[in-house]
Design a binder for these strands. Structure first.
Lengths: 192, 192
DNA sequence: TTGCATACATGCAGCCTGTATGTTAATTAA
DNA sequence: TTAATTAACATACAGGCTGCATGTATGCAA
Protein backbone atom coordinates (compact mmCIF):
# COMPACT_ATOMS: atom_id res chain seq x y z
CA UNK A 1 0.00 0.00 0.00
CA UNK A 2 1.63 3.17 -1.15
CA UNK A 3 1.39 6.40 0.69
CA UNK A 4 2.37 8.70 -2.13
CA UNK A 5 2.69 8.41 -5.84
CA UNK A 6 5.99 9.44 -7.34
CA UNK A 7 4.37 12.21 -9.27
CA UNK A 8 3.02 13.78 -6.12
CA UNK A 9 6.37 13.50 -4.40
CA UNK A 10 8.15 15.23 -7.26
CA UNK A 11 5.56 17.95 -7.40
CA UNK A 12 5.68 18.83 -3.73
CA UNK A 13 9.45 18.58 -3.57
CA UNK A 14 9.89 20.89 -6.53
CA UNK A 15 7.38 23.31 -5.05
CA UNK A 16 9.23 23.39 -1.74
CA UNK A 17 12.56 23.96 -3.45
CA UNK A 18 11.09 26.80 -5.48
CA UNK A 19 9.52 28.36 -2.41
CA UNK A 20 12.65 28.13 -0.31
CA UNK A 21 14.77 29.38 -3.18
CA UNK A 22 12.48 32.30 -3.78
CA UNK A 23 12.45 33.29 -0.13
CA UNK A 24 16.24 33.33 0.06
CA UNK A 25 16.95 34.79 -3.38
CA UNK A 26 14.67 37.77 -2.79
CA UNK A 27 16.02 38.44 0.67
CA UNK A 28 19.74 37.87 0.18
CA UNK A 29 20.34 37.79 -3.55
CA UNK A 30 21.63 34.96 -5.72
CA UNK A 31 25.31 35.09 -4.87
CA UNK A 32 24.82 35.16 -1.11
CA UNK A 33 22.41 32.24 -1.09
CA UNK A 34 23.99 28.81 -0.86
CA UNK A 35 22.39 25.55 -1.82
CA UNK A 36 22.91 24.14 1.70
CA UNK A 37 20.78 26.96 3.07
CA UNK A 38 18.10 26.46 0.42
CA UNK A 39 17.64 22.78 1.09
CA UNK A 40 17.76 23.33 4.85
CA UNK A 41 14.91 25.82 4.50
CA UNK A 42 13.02 23.32 2.40
CA UNK A 43 13.76 20.50 4.85
CA UNK A 44 15.51 18.49 2.19
CA UNK A 45 19.03 17.64 1.16
CA UNK A 46 21.19 18.80 -1.69
CA UNK A 47 20.61 15.46 -3.28
CA UNK A 48 16.98 16.36 -3.89
CA UNK A 49 17.92 19.71 -5.38
CA UNK A 50 20.42 18.26 -7.82
CA UNK A 51 18.01 15.51 -8.71
CA UNK A 52 15.37 17.98 -9.85
CA UNK A 53 17.62 20.74 -11.22
CA UNK A 54 20.89 20.40 -13.10
CA UNK A 55 22.48 23.18 -11.05
CA UNK A 56 21.85 26.15 -8.81
CA UNK A 57 21.35 28.42 -11.78
CA UNK A 58 18.52 26.26 -13.12
CA UNK A 59 16.67 26.51 -9.83
CA UNK A 60 17.16 30.25 -9.95
CA UNK A 61 15.78 30.38 -13.48
CA UNK A 62 12.71 28.46 -12.40
CA UNK A 63 12.18 30.84 -9.49
CA UNK A 64 12.53 33.85 -11.76
CA UNK A 65 10.09 32.45 -14.26
CA UNK A 66 7.52 31.71 -11.60
CA UNK A 67 7.85 35.19 -10.15
CA UNK A 68 7.62 36.87 -13.53
CA UNK A 69 4.41 35.01 -14.19
CA UNK A 70 3.02 36.07 -10.84
CA UNK A 71 3.81 39.72 -11.54
CA UNK A 72 2.17 39.57 -14.94
CA UNK A 73 -0.93 37.98 -13.46
CA UNK A 74 -1.23 40.62 -10.75
CA UNK A 75 -1.00 43.37 -13.33
CA UNK A 76 -3.55 41.99 -15.71
CA UNK A 77 -5.88 41.71 -12.77
CA UNK A 78 -5.33 45.36 -11.90
CA UNK A 79 -6.20 46.76 -15.31
CA UNK A 80 -9.93 46.82 -16.07
CA UNK A 81 -10.64 45.87 -19.65
CA UNK A 82 -13.02 48.77 -20.08
CA UNK A 83 -10.26 51.38 -20.28
CA UNK A 84 -9.17 52.98 -23.48
CA UNK A 85 -5.72 52.05 -24.74
CA UNK A 86 -3.67 54.90 -23.35
CA UNK A 87 -5.35 54.87 -19.96
CA UNK A 88 -4.77 51.15 -19.78
CA UNK A 89 -1.07 51.74 -20.39
CA UNK A 90 -0.84 54.26 -17.58
CA UNK A 91 -2.90 52.19 -15.18
CA UNK A 92 -0.90 49.09 -15.96
CA UNK A 93 2.30 51.05 -15.51
CA UNK A 94 1.31 52.26 -12.10
CA UNK A 95 0.24 48.77 -11.11
CA UNK A 96 3.63 47.51 -12.23
CA UNK A 97 5.44 50.04 -10.08
CA UNK A 98 3.38 49.01 -7.10
CA UNK A 99 3.57 45.28 -7.63
CA UNK A 100 7.30 45.25 -8.20
CA UNK A 101 8.05 46.89 -4.87
CA UNK A 102 7.08 43.83 -2.90
CA UNK A 103 9.84 42.01 -1.07
CA UNK A 104 12.97 41.73 -3.15
CA UNK A 105 11.17 41.31 -6.43
CA UNK A 106 13.16 44.07 -8.03
CA UNK A 107 16.45 42.50 -7.07
CA UNK A 108 15.30 39.12 -8.28
CA UNK A 109 13.83 40.20 -11.61
CA UNK A 110 15.75 43.36 -12.44
CA UNK A 111 19.22 42.93 -10.97
CA UNK A 112 20.17 39.32 -10.36
CA UNK A 113 18.03 37.91 -13.14
CA UNK A 114 19.74 39.66 -16.05
CA UNK A 115 23.18 39.23 -14.53
CA UNK A 116 22.89 35.55 -13.66
CA UNK A 117 20.81 34.33 -16.59
CA UNK A 118 21.93 36.83 -19.18
CA UNK A 119 19.82 39.40 -20.94
CA UNK A 120 18.88 37.03 -23.77
CA UNK A 121 17.44 34.36 -21.46
CA UNK A 122 15.77 37.07 -19.40
CA UNK A 123 14.14 38.48 -22.51
CA UNK A 124 12.56 35.13 -23.27
CA UNK A 125 11.06 35.04 -19.81
CA UNK A 126 9.88 38.64 -19.98
CA UNK A 127 8.38 38.14 -23.40
CA UNK A 128 6.39 35.22 -22.09
CA UNK A 129 5.00 37.23 -19.19
CA UNK A 130 5.41 40.88 -18.25
CA UNK A 131 6.54 42.32 -21.55
CA UNK A 132 3.82 40.48 -23.39
CA UNK A 133 1.20 42.50 -21.54
CA UNK A 134 2.99 45.72 -22.32
CA UNK A 135 3.44 44.89 -25.98
CA UNK A 136 -0.20 44.00 -26.39
CA UNK A 137 -1.17 47.27 -24.76
CA UNK A 138 1.09 49.24 -27.07
CA UNK A 139 -0.09 47.36 -30.11
CA UNK A 140 -3.71 48.04 -29.23
CA UNK A 141 -2.96 51.72 -28.72
CA UNK A 142 -1.13 51.95 -32.04
CA UNK A 143 -3.86 50.12 -33.90
CA UNK A 144 -6.44 52.42 -32.35
CA UNK A 145 -4.45 55.29 -33.79
CA UNK A 146 -3.71 56.71 -30.35
CA UNK A 147 0.05 56.31 -30.66
CA UNK A 148 2.46 57.24 -33.39
CA UNK A 149 3.50 54.24 -35.48
CA UNK A 150 6.84 52.92 -34.26
CA UNK A 151 8.68 49.58 -34.31
CA UNK A 152 6.72 47.62 -31.75
CA UNK A 153 9.49 45.50 -30.29
CA UNK A 154 11.87 48.37 -29.83
CA UNK A 155 9.15 50.50 -28.29
CA UNK A 156 8.18 47.76 -25.88
CA UNK A 157 11.76 47.29 -24.80
CA UNK A 158 12.30 51.01 -24.35
CA UNK A 159 9.20 51.67 -22.29
CA UNK A 160 9.73 48.51 -20.29
CA UNK A 161 13.21 49.70 -19.44
CA UNK A 162 11.86 53.00 -18.19
CA UNK A 163 9.35 51.33 -15.93
CA UNK A 164 11.94 48.88 -14.62
CA UNK A 165 14.30 51.69 -13.87
CA UNK A 166 11.54 53.65 -12.16
CA UNK A 167 10.93 50.68 -9.88
CA UNK A 168 14.57 50.66 -8.83
CA UNK A 169 14.58 54.41 -8.33
CA UNK A 170 11.54 54.18 -6.07
CA UNK A 171 13.14 51.47 -3.98
CA UNK A 172 16.20 53.62 -3.49
CA UNK A 173 14.05 56.45 -2.18
CA UNK A 174 12.93 58.13 -5.39
CA UNK A 175 9.73 60.13 -5.56
CA UNK A 176 6.74 58.37 -7.11
CA UNK A 177 5.20 61.62 -8.31
CA UNK A 178 8.37 62.57 -10.18
CA UNK A 179 8.70 59.17 -11.79
CA UNK A 180 5.10 59.10 -12.92
CA UNK A 181 5.33 62.64 -14.23
CA UNK A 182 8.16 61.62 -16.50
CA UNK A 183 6.61 58.34 -17.57
CA UNK A 184 3.32 60.07 -18.26
CA UNK A 185 5.02 62.80 -20.24
CA UNK A 186 6.88 60.28 -22.37
CA UNK A 187 3.72 58.37 -23.20
CA UNK A 188 1.83 61.58 -23.89
CA UNK A 189 4.63 62.65 -26.18
CA UNK A 190 4.17 59.47 -28.16
CA UNK A 191 0.49 60.11 -28.79
CA UNK A 192 -0.56 61.32 -32.19
CA UNK B 1 70.46 52.69 -3.80
CA UNK B 2 66.80 52.04 -4.42
CA UNK B 3 65.42 50.70 -7.62
CA UNK B 4 61.83 51.81 -7.17
CA UNK B 5 59.96 54.04 -4.83
CA UNK B 6 57.06 52.49 -2.99
CA UNK B 7 54.66 54.87 -4.61
CA UNK B 8 55.66 53.75 -8.07
CA UNK B 9 55.38 50.10 -7.14
CA UNK B 10 51.88 50.58 -5.76
CA UNK B 11 50.83 52.53 -8.78
CA UNK B 12 51.98 50.01 -11.34
CA UNK B 13 50.69 47.07 -9.34
CA UNK B 14 47.27 48.59 -8.94
CA UNK B 15 47.20 49.43 -12.62
CA UNK B 16 48.06 45.87 -13.57
CA UNK B 17 45.41 44.47 -11.27
CA UNK B 18 42.82 46.80 -12.74
CA UNK B 19 43.83 45.91 -16.26
CA UNK B 20 43.79 42.18 -15.66
CA UNK B 21 40.51 42.43 -13.77
CA UNK B 22 38.92 44.44 -16.53
CA UNK B 23 40.03 42.03 -19.22
CA UNK B 24 38.56 39.06 -17.39
CA UNK B 25 35.43 40.72 -16.06
CA UNK B 26 34.38 41.94 -19.48
CA UNK B 27 35.06 38.63 -21.16
CA UNK B 28 33.74 36.17 -18.58
CA UNK B 29 31.67 38.19 -16.14
CA UNK B 30 32.19 38.74 -12.44
CA UNK B 31 31.03 35.40 -11.09
CA UNK B 32 33.09 33.30 -13.48
CA UNK B 33 36.29 35.21 -12.86
CA UNK B 34 38.37 33.99 -9.94
CA UNK B 35 41.02 35.95 -8.12
CA UNK B 36 43.65 33.30 -8.89
CA UNK B 37 43.08 33.89 -12.58
CA UNK B 38 43.20 37.65 -12.17
CA UNK B 39 46.53 37.68 -10.40
CA UNK B 40 47.97 35.11 -12.79
CA UNK B 41 47.07 37.39 -15.69
CA UNK B 42 48.67 40.29 -13.88
CA UNK B 43 51.77 38.21 -13.02
CA UNK B 44 51.25 38.71 -9.33
CA UNK B 45 49.90 36.77 -6.38
CA UNK B 46 46.70 37.00 -4.43
CA UNK B 47 48.69 38.59 -1.67
CA UNK B 48 49.15 41.67 -3.79
CA UNK B 49 45.49 41.86 -4.66
CA UNK B 50 44.35 41.60 -1.05
CA UNK B 51 46.98 44.09 -0.04
CA UNK B 52 45.56 46.75 -2.35
CA UNK B 53 41.87 45.87 -2.21
CA UNK B 54 39.82 44.66 0.75
CA UNK B 55 38.09 42.04 -1.37
CA UNK B 56 37.23 40.93 -4.88
CA UNK B 57 34.21 43.18 -4.97
CA UNK B 58 36.32 46.25 -4.27
CA UNK B 59 38.55 45.48 -7.22
CA UNK B 60 35.45 45.06 -9.34
CA UNK B 61 34.11 48.40 -8.15
CA UNK B 62 37.38 50.07 -9.11
CA UNK B 63 37.26 48.48 -12.54
CA UNK B 64 33.68 49.60 -13.05
CA UNK B 65 34.46 53.14 -12.00
CA UNK B 66 37.43 53.35 -14.34
CA UNK B 67 35.40 52.03 -17.22
CA UNK B 68 32.49 54.36 -16.55
CA UNK B 69 34.88 57.28 -16.62
CA UNK B 70 36.34 56.09 -19.91
CA UNK B 71 32.91 55.82 -21.49
CA UNK B 72 31.96 59.30 -20.34
CA UNK B 73 35.17 60.73 -21.72
CA UNK B 74 34.68 59.09 -25.11
CA UNK B 75 31.18 60.49 -25.34
CA UNK B 76 32.06 64.03 -24.43
CA UNK B 77 34.70 63.88 -27.09
CA UNK B 78 32.16 62.75 -29.66
CA UNK B 79 29.72 65.59 -29.13
CA UNK B 80 30.80 68.91 -30.65
CA UNK B 81 29.97 71.83 -28.40
CA UNK B 82 28.54 73.80 -31.27
CA UNK B 83 25.34 71.74 -31.46
CA UNK B 84 22.04 72.93 -30.15
CA UNK B 85 20.69 71.21 -27.07
CA UNK B 86 18.41 68.64 -28.66
CA UNK B 87 20.85 67.69 -31.39
CA UNK B 88 23.54 67.27 -28.77
CA UNK B 89 21.28 64.85 -26.93
CA UNK B 90 20.70 62.75 -30.00
CA UNK B 91 24.34 62.82 -31.05
CA UNK B 92 25.46 61.93 -27.56
CA UNK B 93 22.92 59.16 -27.44
CA UNK B 94 24.14 57.62 -30.64
CA UNK B 95 27.72 57.90 -29.45
CA UNK B 96 26.73 56.13 -26.27
CA UNK B 97 25.17 53.27 -28.19
CA UNK B 98 28.32 52.90 -30.22
CA UNK B 99 30.80 53.24 -27.41
CA UNK B 100 29.00 50.81 -25.14
CA UNK B 101 29.14 48.00 -27.68
CA UNK B 102 32.87 47.55 -27.28
CA UNK B 103 34.05 44.33 -25.69
CA UNK B 104 31.91 43.33 -22.76
CA UNK B 105 31.33 46.86 -21.57
CA UNK B 106 27.59 46.30 -21.46
CA UNK B 107 27.93 43.25 -19.27
CA UNK B 108 30.34 45.04 -16.98
CA UNK B 109 28.42 48.29 -16.59
CA UNK B 110 24.82 47.27 -17.19
CA UNK B 111 24.48 43.70 -15.95
CA UNK B 112 27.13 42.71 -13.44
CA UNK B 113 27.66 46.21 -12.08
CA UNK B 114 24.16 46.76 -10.73
CA UNK B 115 23.85 43.18 -9.53
CA UNK B 116 27.20 42.96 -7.75
CA UNK B 117 27.48 46.50 -6.41
CA UNK B 118 23.80 47.26 -6.01
CA UNK B 119 21.83 49.91 -7.81
CA UNK B 120 22.56 52.55 -5.18
CA UNK B 121 26.33 52.24 -5.46
CA UNK B 122 26.02 52.05 -9.22
CA UNK B 123 24.02 55.26 -9.25
CA UNK B 124 26.82 57.07 -7.45
CA UNK B 125 29.26 55.94 -10.10
CA UNK B 126 26.94 56.83 -12.96
CA UNK B 127 26.17 60.21 -11.50
CA UNK B 128 29.85 60.95 -11.35
CA UNK B 129 30.40 60.05 -14.99
CA UNK B 130 27.94 58.98 -17.66
CA UNK B 131 24.70 60.22 -16.20
CA UNK B 132 26.26 63.55 -15.37
CA UNK B 133 26.75 64.24 -19.06
CA UNK B 134 23.18 63.28 -19.81
CA UNK B 135 21.75 65.36 -17.00
CA UNK B 136 23.69 68.42 -18.08
CA UNK B 137 22.44 67.96 -21.61
CA UNK B 138 18.86 67.70 -20.44
CA UNK B 139 19.20 70.66 -18.14
CA UNK B 140 20.60 72.77 -20.92
CA UNK B 141 17.79 71.74 -23.23
CA UNK B 142 15.17 72.52 -20.62
CA UNK B 143 16.70 75.88 -19.79
CA UNK B 144 16.81 76.71 -23.46
CA UNK B 145 13.09 76.05 -23.53
CA UNK B 146 13.48 73.20 -25.97
CA UNK B 147 12.09 70.56 -23.62
CA UNK B 148 9.01 70.50 -21.46
CA UNK B 149 9.77 71.19 -17.82
CA UNK B 150 10.05 67.92 -15.91
CA UNK B 151 11.80 66.69 -12.76
CA UNK B 152 15.40 66.58 -13.90
CA UNK B 153 16.63 63.61 -11.90
CA UNK B 154 13.72 61.40 -12.81
CA UNK B 155 13.99 62.36 -16.46
CA UNK B 156 17.70 61.62 -16.50
CA UNK B 157 17.15 58.23 -14.95
CA UNK B 158 14.35 57.38 -17.36
CA UNK B 159 16.18 58.36 -20.52
CA UNK B 160 19.37 56.76 -19.29
CA UNK B 161 17.50 53.54 -18.75
CA UNK B 162 16.18 53.62 -22.31
CA UNK B 163 19.62 54.08 -23.76
CA UNK B 164 21.09 51.38 -21.55
CA UNK B 165 18.39 49.00 -22.60
CA UNK B 166 18.90 49.88 -26.24
CA UNK B 167 22.56 48.95 -25.89
CA UNK B 168 21.64 45.52 -24.59
CA UNK B 169 19.06 45.05 -27.31
CA UNK B 170 21.62 45.87 -29.98
CA UNK B 171 24.10 43.41 -28.56
CA UNK B 172 21.48 40.69 -28.66
CA UNK B 173 20.89 41.35 -32.32
CA UNK B 174 18.44 44.23 -32.23
CA UNK B 175 18.16 46.69 -35.08
CA UNK B 176 19.91 50.02 -34.60
CA UNK B 177 17.47 51.86 -36.85
CA UNK B 178 14.51 50.65 -34.80
CA UNK B 179 16.12 51.57 -31.54
CA UNK B 180 17.06 55.04 -32.70
CA UNK B 181 13.59 55.58 -34.17
CA UNK B 182 12.06 54.97 -30.78
CA UNK B 183 14.62 56.96 -28.85
CA UNK B 184 14.29 59.84 -31.27
CA UNK B 185 10.51 59.75 -31.09
CA UNK B 186 10.57 59.83 -27.31
CA UNK B 187 12.88 62.83 -27.22
CA UNK B 188 10.88 64.59 -29.90
CA UNK B 189 7.75 63.93 -27.90
CA UNK B 190 9.32 65.69 -24.95
CA UNK B 191 10.00 68.85 -26.92
CA UNK B 192 7.78 71.83 -26.33
C1' DT C 1 7.21 -11.02 -7.58
C1' DT C 2 11.01 -9.62 -9.77
C1' DG C 3 13.70 -6.35 -12.12
C1' DC C 4 14.23 -1.56 -13.16
C1' DA C 5 13.65 3.31 -12.68
C1' DT C 6 12.66 7.12 -9.76
C1' DA C 7 13.49 9.99 -5.75
C1' DC C 8 16.11 11.04 -2.89
C1' DA C 9 20.45 11.00 0.96
C1' DT C 10 25.35 10.79 1.88
C1' DG C 11 30.07 11.32 0.94
C1' DC C 12 33.81 13.14 -1.73
C1' DA C 13 36.93 16.15 -4.70
C1' DG C 14 38.11 20.46 -6.31
C1' DC C 15 37.96 25.30 -6.25
C1' DC C 16 37.52 29.74 -4.38
C1' DT C 17 37.53 33.41 -0.97
C1' DG C 18 39.45 35.78 2.86
C1' DT C 19 42.89 35.86 6.49
C1' DA C 20 47.00 35.00 9.02
C1' DT C 21 51.76 34.65 8.77
C1' DG C 22 56.29 35.20 6.76
C1' DT C 23 59.82 37.87 4.00
C1' DT C 24 62.04 41.48 1.55
C1' DA C 25 62.69 46.14 0.42
C1' DA C 26 61.78 51.00 1.22
C1' DT C 27 61.19 54.72 4.52
C1' DT C 28 61.80 57.13 8.81
C1' DA C 29 64.19 58.22 13.33
C1' DA C 30 68.00 58.57 15.90
C1' DT D 1 74.72 55.87 9.01
C1' DT D 2 72.23 52.68 11.17
C1' DA D 3 68.55 50.83 13.68
C1' DA D 4 63.57 50.53 13.81
C1' DT D 5 59.49 50.61 11.49
C1' DT D 6 56.36 50.21 7.96
C1' DA D 7 54.86 49.15 3.25
C1' DA D 8 54.54 45.72 -0.41
C1' DC D 9 54.12 41.85 -1.43
C1' DA D 10 54.37 36.06 -1.29
C1' DT D 11 53.00 31.84 0.96
C1' DA D 12 50.21 28.90 3.74
C1' DC D 13 45.90 27.81 5.80
C1' DA D 14 40.81 27.34 7.14
C1' DG D 15 36.20 27.30 5.92
C1' DG D 16 32.50 26.97 2.69
C1' DC D 17 30.38 25.97 -1.50
C1' DT D 18 29.40 23.60 -5.89
C1' DG D 19 28.85 19.57 -8.62
C1' DC D 20 29.29 14.71 -9.03
C1' DA D 21 29.60 9.93 -7.70
C1' DT D 22 27.84 6.53 -5.01
C1' DG D 23 24.45 4.34 -1.98
C1' DT D 24 19.55 3.16 -0.60
C1' DA D 25 14.69 2.76 -0.40
C1' DT D 26 10.42 3.11 -2.63
C1' DG D 27 7.17 3.23 -6.57
C1' DC D 28 6.26 0.93 -10.84
C1' DA D 29 5.93 -2.13 -14.82
C1' DA D 30 6.14 -6.68 -16.80
Amino acid sequence: MQRKTNRERTETTRARLLEAGRALFVSKGYADTGTPEIVATADLTRGALYHHFPDKQALFAAVVETEAAAVAAEIEQAVPMTLDAVSALLTGGEAYLSVMQQQGRARLLLLDGPSVLGRARMDEIDDAHGNRTLREGLEAAMNAGALKPLPLDALTVALGAMFDRAVLALIDGGDLRDQMAVLGAVIKGLQK
